[in-house]
Design a protein around this nucleic acid. Sequence first.
DNA 1: CTTTAAACTGACCGGTCGGTCGGTGACATC
DNA 2: GATGTCACCGACCGACCGGTCAGTTTAAAG
Lengths: 205, 205
Amino acid sequence: MNKSLKRMATMNRMQVTGLELFYKKGYYNTSVDDILKELSLSKGAFYYHFDSKEDFLVQIIENLLTRKVYSMLIEPIEGHANTLDLITECFDDALETAVHNEMDYGFVLSNFINEFNGRNPEIMKHLNNILQIWEVNLVSALQKGKFNGNIDRHVDAEGVAVYLISSYIGIRTLMVETAPSARKYRYMSQLRQYLKSMEPKKVTV
Amino acid sequence: MNKSLKRMATMNRMQVTGLELFYKKGYYNTSVDDILKELSLSKGAFYYHFDSKEDFLVQIIENLLTRKVYSMLIEPIEGHANTLDLITECFDDALETAVHNEMDYGFVLSNFINEFNGRNPEIMKHLNNILQIWEVNLVSALQKGKFNGNIDRHVDAEGVAVYLISSYIGIRTLMVETAPSARKYRYMSQLRQYLKSMEPKKVTV
DNA sequence: CTTTAAACTGACCGGTCGGTCGGTGACATC
DNA sequence: GATGTCACCGACCGACCGGTCAGTTTAAAG
């Protein structure tokens, strides 16, 4: 195998397993040895590829987490269909994935925000960055919806984006352990109603 | 000082400082010695009053956290005024406290849920219990609102409760570090709109 | 076959943490 | 003022964790 290919393969394996365990047990409660044991690799291999545990996490966030948020929450609302429908379907799909996930530990991004807030500003910078990208994309999708006449022009796009993200982060926390399916159903039903209230007011002539 | 009074006083001091540090740095990242140093007490004093670090946490949750949620989020919506107004004001006050808190680390309850989910079922039981009490009280407040004619009778009280709790948990996470005041404003504006959509439809005769 | 650099091993180190335990001072009771 | 108990002290233990390093394996290149 090509040398640099092997390097990439090993580093990727480590990152995938690392994200998995950090998600399950938290960053500080997962030792480097835990990850290595899962992969049957040694300490030396880890520190040959990464400068430190923190450097490792940064690369996981940049490589895997960012992509995850993009594919799950950003790209699905970039289509040309009715923005409100796209958002509804995107949230529904994302939550459905969580419901079917046997071992659900919540929304990775918000779990990390909770763990590093006030403890590691460097990591928080990266996490806030992802959040901001999500917010910006939501806002522009909403504005496109207003432009296309699917959303009332009086709607405050920034406000709606914040409210949507808030509710999503919250429901993912709530769906952990207690009746995820029932809570998803109730949440989606209210979300639909909330989004419906943004449809353009019919102008009766 | 009376013996048992002194005992209570010391235990309470420990719990208050413990909650403070667990909130700031997380449970697993706060050592028993960290708490003791703050209080100029020794290990022996701690383990004289508490069986273990976990027992200590359980007592904090039962004594301090539960009371905190009650006084901030449950009692304020128990009044006789219009339920929707009570909820609005309650959320506004709770978020305003967070805005003015120089060192804000989010919503204690959801922070703990994030930290212990999938790691400590015993603690999760206590946390889910608080969440459920909150939910039940919200539902009954909403039903009272329907009974009193302040809320449309078609409104799904359980759904609204889940949606409110979700959005609150989420906005508290979002308000951490990045523009808390602006985000609070946007959130509250959308919350008002969402709640307004529940007012009874005027029956024009 | 030899050279060489990359990939990896695992023993080891300094430090931290939860928890233990023998001891000590303060103070109420007799 | 002797006695006993409550509240507290702090040295210590064993487990664990992030990180280092001297050395071994692997495999491409000459």
